[in-house]
């Protein structure tokens, strides 16, 4: 199977590979996927007091499309508010990277990773519970 140029570029020159301290209060971590399925993504975001994503890092076990999807979203989320980042859709990722149909799940996983990282940050900073209470109330 031939990969798109953008997938190859992200695979060969992945952006923002790395880890941040998952116990830090301003870091949210999302770990999604499963080794048995051949894809695991870890996405971390560092959020400013103003609620802006200042930095993002990823580590991914998976095929080239999974690596490219996670690399791409670290670029996209930087500078965004949490709500803006949460609005990133897998279809945007798939479109940007020209993923073939069998690789759509990679973009779904990347979207899940953003949402998981945001949820983790909100839970830590107490926002998650507020929202849950609001929803329940």
């Amino acid at each position: 199977m031939a990969y798109s140029e953008k997938v190859v570029d992200h695979y060969e020159h992945p952006r923002n590979v790395g880890s941040m301290d998952k116990d830090s209060g301003d870091v949210g971590t999302g770990l999604v996927g499963a080794p048995a399925c051949g894809d695991v993504m870890k996405l971390q975001i560092k959020v400013s007091p103003e609620g802006i994503i200042e930095d993002a890092k990823f580590k991914t076990f998976g095929c080239g499309s999974a690596i490219a999807s996670s690399s791409l979203v670290t670029e996209w989320v930087k500078g965004k508010t949490l709500d803006e980042a949460a609005a990133i859709k897998n279809t945007d990722i798939a479109h940007e990277l020209a993923l073939p149909p069998v690789k759509i799940h990679c973009s779904v996983l990347a979207e899940d990773a953003i949402k998981a990282a945001i949820a983790d940050y909100r839970k830590k900073s107490g926002q998650g519970e507020d929202e849950a209470e609001q929803a329940a109330g």
């Binding site: 190859v8 695979y11 051949g38 894809d39 076990f61 998976g62 080239g64 999974a66």
Partner: peptide
């Protein structure tokens, strides 16, 4: 171990 085969083939 810890490296996915298809990703490796691309490498």
């Amino acid at each position: 171990a810890f490296v996915e085969g298809e990703g490796l083939m691309m490498g």
